[in-house]
Nucleic acid binder design. Sequence first.
DNA 1: TGCGGTACTTAGAACGAGGTAT
DNA 2: ATACCTCGTTCTAAGTACCGCA
Length: 686
Amino acid sequence: MFLSCFLLSDSHKHKDKYKEHKHKDYKRDKEKSKHGNSDYKDPSDKKYKDKEKMKHKDGSTEKNKDKHKEKRKEDKVSQAGAIRHFCILGKMQLDIWFQQLCFLEKPGDEGVSECFSLLFIFTLLEWEEERYTDGVKWKFLEHKGPVFAPPYEPLPSRVKFYYDGKPMRLSPEAEEVATFFAKMLDHEYTTKDIFRKNFFKDWRKEMTAEEKATITDLKKCNFTEMSEYFKAQSEARKAMSKEEKQKIKEENERLLQKYGYCIMDNHKERIANFRIEPPGLFRGRGDHPKMGMLKRRIRPEDIIINCSKDSKCPEPPPGTKWKEVRHDNKVTWLVSWTENIQGSIKYIMLNPSSRIKGEKDWQKYETARRLKKCVDRIRAQYREDWKSKEMRVRQRAVALYFIDKLALRAGNEKEEGETADTVGCCSLRVEHINLYPENEGQEYVVEFDFLGKDSIRYYNKVPVEKRVFKNLQLFMENKEPDDDLFDRLNTSILNKHLQELMDGLTAKVFRTYNASITLQQQLKELTTADENIPAKILSYNRANRAVAILCNHQRAPPKTFEKSMQNLQAKIDAKKDQLSDAKRELKSAKADAKVRKDEKTKKAVENKRKAVQRIEEQLMKLEVQATDREENKQIALGTSKLNYLDPRISVAWCKKWGIPVEKIYNKTQREKFAWAIDMADEDYEF
DNA sequence: TGCGGTACTTAGAACGAGGTAT
DNA sequence: ATACCTCGTTCTAAGTACCGCA
């Protein structure tokens, strides 16, 4: 365990302190286990205890000593599992040592085992030292650079653009931008005023002087022929022969093989997004002031390459140059460029299955688990702070309560007019909440109604504690609707405070923590031993859904939802008919058997019985599917599954109930969570 | 203390491959 | 064979967090 906190710490400011603890802890640990009465205390707990002035006990009593000892061993091995997963450092001996360590980790082998553990630990420390001091992310990085968007192909001359009813030939530059608009013609974006205004303004910039003089009104532009042409093209693509499709597939595969991987520290790693974003019209989410603006084509001259000095640097396309080549091993990106809409930087980075992303992910959940250990104290603290004399402390405490209870996002401030008007906790405005001293039989109800990330609406009515309610009234006094609710607070202040409560604690850790703990608790509650696998998976999905609801992960109901629901219902009805038929047949077979009493009829009865059983099972499966789908209409499960739920909880659940992990995670997800699949056994506790 | 800049995670929608029903 | 549907994959926008500077 203490290994992990050392390995996981990338705050090197505290390096020496960590070292000190580490040695102390190790000694203590070792001595105790030698005498066989180790009273296990998680060193990571201890480490933060000093800092936090924690007063609570860790709950270990004489009785569960042994259990703790067991737990410690398991933890050690499972942590080692993940460490091993990430340490495939060349042909390092680590793996061998690991095997030996596991093999020896049996009663009676203590001494040898400790010896190997020690060796193991020193190697890891060395590895850590070498690799991660001062935020170094890698030592060697080689890649082939990005794949650029294909150049623009002018339209065939028969496809015409009309202005004011008259055909008009456009310059290639103006034509390209026009095709972007034409391709979106069916989308409601193109009816929005802001979109049209932004598009037209940027389009005109690409026009020649004559075009500019002629084309002065977007309403007079007719893009339908272009639009039809692209629709035909996409139809043609769909109708291509198998061979042609195969050829395209092969070409894609070739590109993937060549550009889709990099070498980072002796490992070939998959790159997430090696293709540069093609030009087009910017589509923001929600009411975005910049929707419709032209997203420029990215050229090699815009590109910054990052790789190691001793690697083979990627070549720019013939006749071009990179903007810059740098060798910064304190960052993880391979390629970057500045985007022209917001002026923000875009990156090419590694796939979630890569070591660098996986370790970070693991670390994220370990931080959330540390929060679990001190969340009671933090909750007690913010409740105390509701009474503070200082306004800023009260605001901080109420905001933190919302973040904890409702899993709200932090809410950084945003530049006005640059993005859609969305908020998170710290940026809530008075207009986003309503207070009801009494509502539907409940006291002190707060009604939230605001647009959050991606302009997804957050609507919730929650009863809160009287103190919170009174505080909110106070915060809202003498304010306009568009004033900040928490005028003495921002994310930076909040996070600074959280940092003092626990090392590595930020607002978003609460989301991770609450999501994961909810999954674990829901799984415990919903899973029953005697259910079959589909029913268990329904339970899993329900637990997942509880988290998605907590985190407000919504989706637009699929366009074909009603219809596909009807189809499913039809299937269920058909299955029901089939079942009653089968039952009838069984009955008559039974009657038959009563009379004839020969082997053949007996067998027939048995067969019919089996058929009924099979159909019943199928029916049940369909019904479960229908329930699942209905409940999922507007809820997106993917985001929480991918970003908030400690995968080890799911892996442990699968192992405990004998569910193949493939039923829960698809191939990509299994790749992303390989570390967890390696690491967690059925007893894993978040 | 605020601000701009940077790096990285989280997000829903669009797209498209491939399986199933007809 | 074709239409349709589902699910996985890709895309890229929109967040969080933190740093260095004035």
